[in-house]
Design a protein around this nucleic acid. Sequence first.
RNA 1: GGACGCUUAGCUCAGUUGGUUAGAGCACGUGCUUCACACGCACGGGGUCACAGGUUCGAGUCCUGUAGCGUCCACCA
Length: 907
Amino acid sequence: MAQITKSYEPQEVEKKWYADWLQAGCFAGRANPARRPYTIMIPPPNVTGVLTMGHVLNNTLQDILVRRARLEGCEALWLPGTDHAGIATQTVVERELRKEKKTRRDLGREKFLEKVWSWREEKGGIILKQLQALGASADWSRTQFTMDPAYSQAVLKVFVDLYGKGQIYRGKRMVNWCPVSLTALSDEEVIMKPAKGFLYQVRYELVSQPGQFIEVKTTRPETIPGDVAIAVHPDDPRYTAFIGQKVRRPIGPAAEIPIIADTAVDKSFGSGALKITPAHDKVDFEVGQRHKLPPIDVLTADAKLNELAGPELAGLDRFAGRKKAAELLKERGALVKEEPYENNVGYSERADVPIEPRLTWQWWLKYPRIEEAKSAVRDGHIKFYPERWSKVYLHWLENIQDWCISRQLWWGHRIPVWYAKGLDKESLTETDLADPKKVHVSLEGPSDPANWVQEDDVLDTWASSWLWPFATLGWPDKSVMDKAGFDYFYPTTTLVTGPDIIFFWVARMIMAGLEFVRPGEPLERRIPFKHVYFTGIIRDQQGRKMSKSLGNSPDPLDLIAKYGADGLRFGIVSIAPQGQDIRFQEDRIEGGKNFCNKLWNACRFRQMNGEMADNSSLGAILARIEPPKFDADDHAILARLLATTREVDRCFAEFEFSAAVQALYGFFWNDFCDWYVEVSKAKLQDPATKANCLAIQDLVLRQTLLLLHPFIPFITEDLWHQLGYGAEGTFLMRDTQLENPSQIAGRGLKLDGAAAAQVETLKAVVSQVRAFKAEHGEAASKVSEFVVEASDAHWTILDANLTKLKRMTGAGSITRGAMSPTAPATVTAYGSWNLIKQLKGDPAAEKARLKKELEAIAKHIAGTQARLSNEAFVSKAPPAVLEGARKQLADQQAKQAELERLLAALG
RNA sequence: GGACGCUUAGCUCAGUUGGUUAGAGCACGUGCUUCACACGCACGGGGUCACAGGUUCGAGUCCUGUAGCGUCCACCA
């Protein structure tokens, strides 16, 4: 066996093991009835994306879950893939085209799509390669892409199916229009942002009473040419007389428009009168509908004013038009007032410009299974972690609106609808739409394609990714599903994602699963996943979201190069408590690396301290352990090992990853390295205790590697083999099962519970003695001589641990005897320790020190006594607490007495 | 306007059902090239747990309110 190197160098180790795992097919998930399935579908990143810190966290957690599942004996499937990301990808390619001074229309649909595909060939999958560098144990042979032929078939089938069920319809309605991307957007893709502007107070002259006006307030004077009415509240006494009268539109084509009454008007806002512009506002549109007032659209698709806005405004961009309209109003004396105003404006998420409410023909989806989707979460078939997100989810479902699923883009799934040639698509009626001679909807398309024209629009990306949990397993093709193990792996076990896509993706997947999978079967067989773990968002030091545009996100690959993939994984998980946003700190990643190095060196220490014995199985190690030779430290370390194992179990059950990491860190670094390994140094010198001590180390290291493996897979796999835990050709990650503590405890080991408490006390004593030395100017490494005055019981304990204690306190000798009154002493839980090298201690200083300590203890005693003399406390506190307080008082008083005795001895 | 989250050491954060003197990592100070590890060891300084009330024998923890920060939802032009 090769000697373990002095420090851990991750690069070679990571490369080697990832290649070996791939080579051996360790990541494959295959239906295996002998095991429980554990399934995770990756939230598919954008196909042309690159790895961000958010991906690192998200995918590390998924990898942790599947690796742990494997160790628990599950058949784990982590299915990877990418999303075609319609708008995002198309935007990127169009930007490239613009460098050549071309637009997608110059190329035409077909050529443009070729370009996108070749872009995808070039950049696609980079992110998956990056995930491999992170150690992701996904089944790459199953990699899916939402534009793959089979996946696309599933998407189109769903469209046809829902259309057949009447859940999908075409309608001319108000949509959120992005004037840059030139497409409709769903409500979820619109972000409300406060925008600074002006509130213009405008007066409209009454036709019948010249010189009389009605005033309205608006932020968008450029849409006045599109006004079709002025609305007031029917119950507003100020305006009762105005209802039914007409006013003149102050700018744009001359027109007389009516004053109408509608309850949508808020009496208390502004003047209480509202201009009605049905083509450019959702509420106005509804009002217009109610009053049968046809909309006048004064904007073009890219948000310039058109000829309907009148010659003064036509051709202007909407913002220039706004200024111009205000000027025109002023000139005509119609502008009463103009005041700075801040209101919320909807922005296009992708293009970051204000969206326009726009009346267009679109395809709409009435969500299926809304009620079932609610109960799936409400009744606990799907559990959210943290639970509070379920409230957000339910609230959204309560207020759900039809989903605009068509996009005026080219990159995406083209909608499987054909219109009869020559049909005027702009003026379709309900009857036309229902007529199969005019509108054809099918997977195969019409049999006489020459007579038909296919719909130009494509589907919203989310209208493909909402099928991810089952379309990736071959749905709806029965033979592919069987091959993929659909029956075995669905429903998936856990979804790991960010709360920012709870509506976009999570809720929709739930509805899709309920609608399409295993129709007629119980809800719990149709849901797409059982657990949803919502990660926090990674922020920078200033608390800003990490994003490419801000450039505040470190490149994960740089971090891997610097700290190793394991270091990065350990670090990121340790700062990611459940459901809380994370402020990224690189020093935590460094901490991860340092932990790996610590682990490495502890194994190195084991290897340097004796021949490796039979480590081939847990049983083999347990057979080498000799319980009769156990001392308190042996009992204590194994008890802590079992407790840590249980704690990690609990953490996995409750998705508390950072708590698991902290538990393992504390156990390994503090309990094992700082104490057990240190006391081992004495035990290893003694042939009588050496073999048992090494066996215990082997047991602890083995279990620690198993527990740590999901978090830091590379180094644990490597050390697993270096220490002989795994045979050649086998893998920790694939061929090993995590045994639970009761099994370990069940192999003839009776752990003494009291030993742990004794070790804790010994640690405190050692710590106190070290501090005592430091206080008196003796370096920890300096050999000191101690005389201890202790009770028989305490001395017995000290005596039993003498060699270790000498090493831990840096003592040449620790003897029992009478104290020197002049040498400094410290009162510990196990006797008073006298530092006799300092015979010439300064009695005055020593006195002062003791007095200070006495003062402190007196305070504590007073506090404890006060509690104990409180009648209510004594009668109401639980016995354990009461007893604890009494014992505390006794200890404090004993210490006080001892301090007083020392003080008296000083004279 | 509604909902949710956060506020604990200089920084980033833990703190399970209320129970001794509130913890960790980093940073800081002192001392250590001790035969696993300086990516380390030992010791130390540092907190009126945002604020104000309340419940309780006992509150960082439960309740009410206030403030600040953040997120989401919402058709006030």
